[in-house]
Nucleic acid binder design. Structure first.
Lengths: 325, 325
DNA sequence: AAATGATGTGGAACGGGTTTCATATCAAAA
DNA sequence: TTTTGATATGAAACCCGTTCCACATCATTT
């Protein structure tokens, strides 16, 4: 591999001149520039990013930590974050924790080793204390680590309210919602609290079932929802995230219950799969595009030393009316 | 940030000794080791990976290039490849081309700039010639770049045969399949050729429709499949990839056609969404776990200079019987 | 004519590791 | 006793860019 010194030698200039020519910093005569360009062409020279990284002490890579890349919500989010980072000239390292706290720890360590310049985390398998020790750029998605780490999340309270009102207005009297364990500290729990509150206020009976928090596999939801539908036979409304909701719909139909006539189902997230169910699922849409933009915007500000960002950013949600309610 | 020289100074040894102690290479006395460990503790020293990278001229990162991370097949593949790479001590950079050839090119350039040690590519937006110029580790998924670049793909011929036989045995007489443009050079086209061939041999009428090759959005499939179902009204069997197949099912049901009684549908890929449709979709399963393992195994052999890999690796497929056929 | 400023340049130092090399010590073998 | 080999170590070179600094031109000002 040709280095900048080879170029300098061939062009009969110093390495400094080549560097200035390449970066457009400082003075370079037209004559020198021409000879340098020719040498670069001749040698097929490409600057070695690893050397740049060492000097700048930056890798230009942002890590995104998600619990399961295959889950449609995180797949979409990863895709959109990657797009934003690409547009801003950064590269994306992907970290899939699949619920294993060791992995989450390993990925965080990459901050210390300068492999990534910052991390956007949407995982939940690790203790808060580990995060609080780190004082490098971290942005949290749907998780509150306290004042040191900025967090971005949807207006889950509104989401819960919209879901509740939708089921109530559709005439539900006895509804079921699935919530991730209340042990996991996340703003998204607010949607379940609000959902319960609104239902109660309207005299609607509501059951909240806590599901396993660290399993986001299709397989798990398929089996679990089928079992739950056997247990909760008299409900007339369901609120849960899209994937679980879709499996509820299938389990209910298999039991001969009609949707939305007998049971109304409302999902959360509004990812692509809501159009795959029959009927098309009503869902609360999280604005993943805006979430991604804010995550990227905030992490890059942190990396680049711009303190002008808000600690907590809340993104609006919206009801996406389908035919399951 | 403390450097290895700070540690050396504090422990009263040379930098070489610290390096040897850290890496377990060469001789270090128990006494020196102890003082070094203490100094590391005291200073909170972590080796800077960027410096290591420069010396080794390796980043320890493998790039994976996919057309759309949100598409369930690529989401699963990315997830599994990331897992394999993690287990082998490598990091994963994600590259989402969304059909834009400039992006694919940009990501390939990272090989030259030493940002990634190798690339596993599943994208198709770029000309073959660009790839052929590169002589750094590249593994292709479902794409044949000629003898220089190893390729890994499913036994698509068998897939096409299984799909055809399934529809034929179920009594179909007039089937439709959607194929990606034959202009795109991919081994996966073989499944359509084989499907046609088997159908013809059994006296079944078959229509092959070429769809847009670079759009893998849910939105696109939803609209396109609805339109196609309006055009091809008299078919009794459909073969296409899972996402498209799922939307075909919904469009057909919306038109009052019963599945599988009137129209039989068989998908391809067998990703999680086959359990979301009603009825559960029959599909040809690609073994993404084995594909991922082989991709990772091959790219790491290339990176580590081990030439002991096969140029073309074909992974078995299987019929996953659901209720749509 | 002397001082000033813009333009242009090469060489050295730097970032933080790894590796090589010359050298030193000490115990065991010849 | 000399030789030999294992153990142990620090200094220096290296990886490859970027930046700083000293210095050289040359055209304007004063």
């Amino acid at each position: 591999m040709a280095s900048i010194r080879d170029v300098a030698k061939m062009a009969n200039v110093g390495v400094g001149t080549v560097s200035r020519a390449l970066n457009g910093t400082g003075y370079v005569s037209a004559d020198a520039k021409k000879r340098i360009d020719e040498a670069i062409q001749e040698l097929g020279y490409t600057p070695n990013e690893l050397a740049k990284n060492l000097f700048r002490n930056r890798s230009g890579i942002v890590g995104i930590v998600v619990p399961n890349l295959e889950h449609p919500f995180f797949a979409r989010l990863s895709r959109e974050i990657e797009s934003c980072l690409y547009e801003r000239g950064y590269k994306t390292m992907i970290c899939n924790t699949i619920g294993i706290s060791n992995r989450e720890k390993d990925y965080l360590d990459m901050l210390d080793r300068n492999i990534v310049d910052g991390i956007i985390t949407g995982a939940h398998s690790l203790d808060d204390s580990v995060y609080l020790k780190i004082n490098k750029p971290i942005v949290a998605l749907d998780r509150d680590f306290g004042r040191k780490i900025p967090l971005i999340h949807s207006d889950h309270e509104k989401g819960g309210r919209l879901a509740a009102m939708t089921l109530i207005e559709a005439g539900c009297k006895n509804v079921l919602q699935f919530a991730t364990s209340s042990l996991v500290h996340t703003p998204s729990n607010k949607r379940h609290i609000e959902f319960e509150k609104i239902c109660r206020e309207h005299g609607v009976r509501v059951t909240t079932v806590e599901t396993v928090w660290n399993n986001l596999e299709y397989e798990y939801f398929r089996n679990a929802m089928k079992d739950y539908m056997d247990i909760y036979e008299d409900i007339d409304g369901i609120f849960t995230a899209d994937v679980a909701a879709a499996f509820c719909m299938n389990a209910l139909k298999a039991k001969g219950r009609r949707i939305p006539q007998e049971v109304k189902v409302i999902g959360y997230d509004a990812v692509g799969i809501i159009y795959l169910t029959d009927p098309v699922m009503t869902s609360i849409a999280q604005n993943t595009t805006e979430i991604s933009q804010r995550c990227v915007d905030t992490i890059l500000k942190m990396i680049e030393g711009n303190k002008n960002y808000e600690r907590q950013q809340i993104v609006d949600v919206a009801l996406l009316k389908g035919d399951s309610t």
